[in-house]
Design a binder for these strands. Sequence first.
DNA 1: TTTTAGTTTTAGTCGCGTCTAAAAGGGGGT
DNA 2: ACCCCCTTTTAGACGCGACTAAAACTAAAA
Lengths: 231, 231
Amino acid sequence: MEKKDEMVPGRAMEDYLADIFRLQKESQDPHTAVATQEVAQRRKVSAASTTAMFKRLAREGLVAYREYQGVTLTPRGEQMALQVLRRHRIVERFLTDILGISWEEVDEMAHQMEHALPDPVVDAMERYLGDPRTCPHGFPIPDRQGYVDPLPRQTLAQVEPGQQAVISHVDERVEGLLARLAQMDLHPGTILKVLGRDPLDDLLVVEARGSRMTHLIGPRMAAGIFVRPLD
Amino acid sequence: MEKKDEMVPGRAMEDYLADIFRLQKESQDPHTAVATQEVAQRRKVSAASTTAMFKRLAREGLVAYREYQGVTLTPRGEQMALQVLRRHRIVERFLTDILGISWEEVDEMAHQMEHALPDPVVDAMERYLGDPRTCPHGFPIPDRQGYVDPLPRQTLAQVEPGQQAVISHVDERVEGLLARLAQMDLHPGTILKVLGRDPLDDLLVVEARGSRMTHLIGPRMAAGIFVRPLD
DNA sequence: TTTTAGTTTTAGTCGCGTCTAAAAGGGGGT
DNA sequence: ACCCCCTTTTAGACGCGACTAAAACTAAAA
């Protein structure tokens, strides 16, 4: 039969690249290598499988792999990871804004879909949406060249009483966080004022500008809400 | 690690099921088994691979397989095939009607996408479209229960001069047919009147009701255009 | 420096989906 | 009835992506 040479780096490879990228960005020093176990845990896969994949990725020139030291994305690997993130976030936007699916569900669905969508489809979705700049959770959408806005690292937990901040993005992996925020009508873009902090349980009292509602937010939740300070 | 038991019949299995279904419908007697080679040719895969897949499908109870005699879909297999067709055709409609992609391109794209779309997404697309009854090429969309309207088997080639017929559906696999029809602004639903037949090259002279344009259609094209007679 | 706890890699296996080459089966013509 | 051609199946292989169990390595504490 005809051999399909098309160097299409398997659906799984793309998942690994995107997760390596995310882990790199999340780590305090984004220049150190990403460890086998970090990736294994994130992907819910054994460490052995991860090692095997590191070798495949290295063979394809997508990561630099040093035994026992983890991996770093090469420029090509990073570019590919960014394209995966781009697809993922556009699809998420499409699912929420056009198809009316809740923001708790779209991460998993987009993950399922993202490797199967032809580029023209993703581009058409993007145009249909009016070139959105972020996904529903507030993460920036890389452009076709792979440029992506930097993310703030400050969380709501670090905001001092009396200060104001605007929600930048929300960690979708924190169990129940998205549902709670939806209940409180808090979203990326919402401006918050920290009224006070209960030192006993480390609860934050915040007021949402606009709705003028006040809410109590625990430390786990606050650590998943990333903000930009407001002068 | 956790074992993911979820009996998800592999993306490829679904492709085979759908193609077996289509071949069954296209054959003169839809009750005879579908041969190994038919499937192999349709899927552009070796006969050996097809035999291997027949065994897997039989093991899963999706086809009845008799050695050297080909396969027949079981009720479960047929149901699954219908759901694949449903997804495929809804996605095609979505790509043309919402995202503005041309009907020549959507078959391949939908094929690429169809196995990765979660059911809620397909259902949301269907609602967004207003519950369309056919794909852009005129094939009926099975409902959630798997019911699908029967297709006419008469082609334009069989229409006698003087008679009128409405285009039901178009064989998307006929090379160049979709592009030609788009040029002529002929679509499923268009009413045609066969004005005459040139016996030398077996060309049909047809007039499109509405545009009142007349066109010449060769035998290859005519055999890919399925029609319903008009009284 | 040696021990030890935790991480990483190797070794071997499995299922899917594909291939090629060779063997086996089936059906029509003489 | 036999042969030949065409179809189908078997046999053996491969790459991907996963697993477990065991061996190798690292780093940090004693």
